[in-house]
Computed example of a mutant assay.
Amino acid sequence: MAVIIEDDADIRHLLESVLTQAGFDVIATSNGHDGIQAVRAYEPIVTTLDVSMPGMDGFEVAKRLRTFSQTYIVMLTARDEEIDTLQGLEAGADDYLTKPFRPRELRARIDAMLRRPRMAFADDAAVVAPAVPAPPAPSPAAAPEAPAAAVPAAVPVVPVVAPSVEPAPHTGAHAAPAVPDAASSAVRETSEDSGEGWIEHNGLRLNREMRLASLDGRDLDLTRTEFDLLVAVVESKRRVRTKADLALLLRGESYVTAYYVTEADKRAVEVHMGNLRKKLGDSLTTPRWLETVRGVGYRLAAADE
């Protein structure tokens, strides 16, 4: 299921065509209020959102959607200023395209988002939404004692595929140093002591499989993108991850240099890393977790002594 929130009729019809061809059932709306109600009613996998709409603009719509929905939000707008991109991502958008956009690029970006884990919330803890298992086939030899419960018609389920974030095996420009330094040793030792699947650094604990994060015993409320970026940097230890590298990772194309990374993609990474720093309470000048390498990217800060 996909929801379109777009006040321009021509663009709305184009989006309907693109998303229908991509295999979605589409609900199209022309304003923010109707769009919010549609997302609440239909629980779509993807929502396209125009920024410049009369009444409630796209930034406000995105903020309201994020209070109750984990739908993937793609913002579409004629605004191409950097501040607009940053404001859209901070409002909760997963991606941002400027008009006029190319339908094939929109489909490619949606496909990339769907390759990232979807999230559900249970008891206020972020977990990966499991795929719905098929009901077991009845045994032909067994006599039916009671009619089986009816299985409701299922909304199309997108397979959950966790992104590959395993930097260690790579060689060449992305190869890790042969001799680990103090920070990488600390990450490795604490991860071994923290139990299966857990890594720890300076009081920060992460579990990629369960998608859990805590700092000094306090649960962290991270978005999908923030969690993926944080895991990538921590698992890479002291090896620098470039902005282009992290942008490709978020699109599900890690370490594939053939894919083009725009300046908007890099700015999006900067925004997400800035939001991560705020949630961690990290310092730019004396970081404990996210160290900026000027003009290049990010790496894990040294371990506390």
Rank of each mutant, 00 (worst) to 15 (best):
M1N: 04
A2I: 09
I5N: 01
E6A: 07
L14S: 10
L15R: 02
E16P: 01
S17R: 12
L19T: 02
L19M: 05
F24T: 00
D25K: 12
A28F: 00
G32C: 01
G35T: 01
V39T: 07
P44E: 00
V46D: 01
L49V: 06
M53A: 06
G55N: 07
A62K: 00
Y72K: 08
I73E: 04
I73L: 13
M75N: 02
T77A: 10
L86R: 15
G88C: 08
A91K: 06
G92R: 02
D94N: 13
P100E: 09
P100Q: 10
R116H: 07
M119T: 14
A125V: 15
A129W: 01
V132R: 10
A134K: 14
S139V: 02
P140F: 05
A146K: 14
A148S: 09
A153W: 04
V157G: 08
V158W: 07
P159Q: 07
P159F: 03
A162E: 14
P169N: 08
P169Y: 08
H174A: 14
A176I: 09
P180S: 10
S184T: 13
V187L: 12
E192F: 08
G195I: 11
W198Q: 03
N202C: 09
G203P: 04
L204H: 11
R205C: 01
R205S: 03
R205Q: 06
N207K: 10
N207Q: 09
A213D: 03
G217I: 04
L230Q: 12
R238F: 07
R239N: 09
V240I: 15
A244I: 04
D245C: 04
L250C: 10
L250H: 12
L250K: 08
G252K: 00
E253Q: 14
S254F: 05
A268W: 00
V269P: 00
E270M: 11
E270Q: 15
H272T: 09
M273V: 15
L280K: 11
G281C: 05
S283H: 09
L284V: 09
L284W: 07
T286K: 14
E291C: 03
V293P: 05
G295L: 07
V296G: 01
R299F: 06
A303M: 08
E305H: 14
